[in-house]
Design a protein around this nucleic acid. Structure first.
Lengths: 220, 220
DNA sequence: ATACCTTTAGAACAAGCGTTCGATGGTACG
DNA sequence: CGTACCATCGAACGCTTGTTCTAAAGGTAT
């Protein structure tokens, strides 16, 4: 069902000059490994996933995993870090195409929903999982970028609120919108099949009407 | 911080005639055990929680736990089962006081939010955790009651929709509302301190305006 | 062929896991 | 006083966990 074969384009951390030919081909297999780990983490949870599970699901031997990564918590960190980087980057790109606050809000929602649809496991691991043994600064780094991402939305909401005098406080509103975008996969597990664009638009409409008091709607 | 000492009133499964004096005093300690387990499950996750953690947090010895419960997955089942029972019961009672659809919706939201506020760990365990080794019918029983609870909301939404011709499909809308009520504890982790009643009202207003197209609001 | 580097896999490790067992102290009643 | 029962606990069981170690297979360049 869920494809997720396409790599998380942006932050593959390759810093090499393009000329170098040999350059250690471990990158593609690392991608496979991360994708498999993300899927398993997403379904069984971080603590519920064993390294042997990941080995089995990725087709890489147990000890082989340690050739590509430093260990279990590094796997989680790498997944979360890449995902939030990709979200930040694609959001920034989407936002650069419009200027009016409501249009930016629509762009942000569409971007987040569509990315979540393309890489469900990665986004789920980013938002639901946290390493119990995470050493620390790596988790903090992810948390920092996460709040950066939240701030992007809050700033948009502030602008929307400023031009339409919305009655709902922005931090609260941003939490509600994130909750809607991260759902379903909870409670109802909506059986209505609706495509990504429609879902994003529905969330946007539902939210904007509630947030601004009923008046607004973006272009088109 | 979170108190949660008050027991889950409704379904303590005591079926004894009130006269019987001895009646095995294990009930209160079971309650303590379940509360401790719920808190630990909520913070560390089901798989991330060891029986030794629960023993430590509840003040009951590791082997003592097995005097009160059949094992780890039974603990989870008992927590989830009691919580959904309590939610169903208190929702039914709250709904019986009003008749107009929008008033019922407000009652449902207020009930759910306030219950979640009184027993955050229990509700979190109910909605976020699932037993990997759960044998089965017990998990199915919880799932059944959960969808019963969802149906209660959906029926209310259907009635609201019928009398105000809302443009959003009901299953989708119910997912969104549940998502809002179950958030925060994700993304923004809203630092605005707002009391329970206000939060419930904000969610209700935000949702109803978005759902009905801007017109409606309940009494008062 | 020889040497070298990348990549893989099997075996093993100590630590932690859920669960069971046997024993202990405490009341209640003959 | 003795016997039965309830509640509780420390110790131990077999198994799984994350991780490391050692050796070997494939490839390329000498």
């Amino acid at each position: 069902m869920s494809d997720e074969s396409t790599p998380l384009t942006p932050p593959a951390e390759s810093g090499s000059v393009s000329g170098a030919p040999s350059e250690s081909q471990r990158a593609p297999k690392l991608e496979t490994l991360l994708a498999a780990a993300a899927t398993t983490f997403a379904t069984r949870g971080y603590s519920g996933t064993s390294m042997r599970d990941i080995a089995h699901d990725s087709g890489i031997s147990l000890s082989g995993i340690y050739y590509y990564t430093r260990g279990k918590s590094s796997l989680l960190y790498e997944i979360q870090s890449r995902t939030i980087d990709a979200l930040l980057a694609s959001a920034a790109q989407a936002l650069s195409t419009v200027t009016r606050p409501l249009d930016q809000l629509l762009q942000f929602v569409e971007n987040h929903v569509s990315y979540s649809n393309d890489h469900p496991a990665f986004v789920r691991v980013l938002s639901h999982e946290t390493a119990p043994d995470g050493t620390d600064e790596r988790r903090e780094a992810v948390e920092l970028k996460r709040s950066e991402y939240v701030k992007v939305l809050r700033d948009i909401l502030d602008r929307v609120r400023h031009e339409s005098s919305a009655p709902v406080p922005t931090p609260f509103a941003s939490d509600m919108l994130f909750a809607m975008m991260s759902g379903p996969r909870q409670w109802g597990v909506s059986d209505t099949e609706l495509n990504v664009g429609m879902a994003a638009r529905l969330i946007y409409d539902l939210f904007v009407r509630g947030f601004t008091g009923g008046a607004a709607a973006a272009r088109q």
